[in-house]
Design a protein around this nucleic acid. Structure first.
Lengths: 249, 249
DNA sequence: TCAAAAGTGTTTTATCTACACCCATGG
DNA sequence: CCATGGGTGTAGATAAAACACTTTTGA
């Protein structure tokens, strides 16, 4: 059974070395429904999804989401939604807010639980499955018209990400496995919306011991090749346990 | 109509100058139901509430909560719940997490949205209405057996509070209108679970200009009477806007 | 006059900020 | 050899931490 009053919306963020992007959809309800929830009675699900922002037939864009089946855990369902849209299932997912105004969706009382996801779009190509009518990256500060309260949802996701990124070293989830310090800094500049001093930034990062020099370098760049680093998961886990004295601002 | 799959649980925190407390309930479902939702069909509501942790007949304690009617905004309903339990409606309320494991409540799929509230229990007496079978303050680190996943809910509320209190000056919501610097410090010590240096703490607070000297002093204390301060709401609002460089750790 | 908590400054140490030039690479 | 971004250190300012004694009050 699908729970009619509850949906999950996933604000999927990506970073392409220049800017932060958010993935929005215009979808084909019939196809994706078959796929997500084969055990459901078609009519019931169709009704629900047609009335849900993510599957509505109107021309506006939507945050990617769906109504949750009664047999799926909340976190697991968010993961399912992201995997369905992108083909990736090892993404960083964070529940950030539950939206519950009575009139956020016309004609239906739908409470939606918002998650944001961090993925690296350049290294994992988005799977444009048959289910997807349209799936595109947008600049979160210049969104197209969005369905219902989805602009608010993206806004709040962005705020939560900005908050979180300052105190937890989660930014690397938006980067490929190997990255340069400049990319790392640029990530923070883009998310926080301000320029930082290169030397000071590098000093701070170095003190945290979160990055490992891979010994490799960029190739085929028309300038001095930058060193490539990767994230040290052990230090990351340790920092998380110790209350993490990670701070970037 | 009551939404059967969605409840709101409010973890109500209080501070009595020595320790942080959390308000838990054992309630009389029949009476409170009449009160909360007179327009509902009795049988439907009774069924729901009897199966909801906050209104179950088992002897364990519950976080104070209820199922949300389809006609009430989420935030407003949380406020209603707190007002119903305490008689206070100007409390600080913060949504902190949505709990959605399939089996968190046996036999029913109930997703619950968790809020925490900060109140000052010494100055606003908890109204023990007819609806309340039992309502008591507990040490959040030494809870009685709690229904379902309510221990986890309290735990997560506490973690969220600890997080939030360090970066936003919300602590004063737990204090009476006028308070001493020692009380203010003690509040932080209790929430964060560690002793702080008095002189350094006072320096920090003084730099923020968040407190106003009322000119008054404690009375009838058997030691030097401390100055009484109150919160400066204007500075508070300003700090909130400016991204608040408030930090206590 | 005693007990109990209030109140107050200075020195040391760590962290943050501002700032400018040389280096490596491909075209 | 030029354009482009990569990479580095130091000095001054600011904030954090450590630390002990005097004051006020009621009993």
């Amino acid at each position: 059974m699908i729970l009619k009053s509850i949906s999950v919306d996933c604000v999927i963020f990506g970073f392409d070395n220049q800017s932060l992007k958010v993935l929005l959809s215009r979808q084909n309800p019939e196809v994706i429904l078959n796929q997500i929830n084969q055990q459901e009675s078609w009519e019931e699900v169709k009704h629900l999804f047609e009335n849900h922002p993510s599957f509505s037939n109107n021309p506006s864009w939507n945050v990617i989401g769906a109504h949750i089946p009664s047999t799926t855990d909340l976190d697991a369902f968010a993961r399912e939604i992201v995997e369905n849209a992108t083909g990736m299932n090892d993404v960083y997912l964070q529940q950030f807010h539950c939206f519950g105004q009575v009139n956020r969706v016309p004609n239906h009382r739908v409470i939606t639980i918002g998650y944001y996801a961090l993925i690296n779009p350049t290294h994992h190509l988005i799977r444009k499955s048959v289910a997807v009518k349209a799936l595109e990256w947008f600049d979160p500060t210049a969104l197209p018209p969005l369905a219902f309260d989805h602009a608010e949802i993206v806004q709040k996701a962005l705020e939560s990400l900005r908050q979180e990124v300052q105190y937890r070293p989660i930014g690397f989830h938006l980067l490929p496995e190997q990255f340069t310090l400049t990319e790392f800094q640029s990530l923070y500049e883009v998310i926080l919306g301000k320029k930082m001093d290169t030397r000071n930034f590098r000093k701070k990062i170095a003190n945290m011991n979160l990055l490992i020099d891979t010994g490799e370098k960029q190739k085929n760049v028309s300038h001095r090749a930058a060193k490539l680093y990767r994230f040290d998961m052990d230090v990351y886990e340790q920092l998380k346990r110790e209350g993490l004295k990670f701070r970037i601002e």
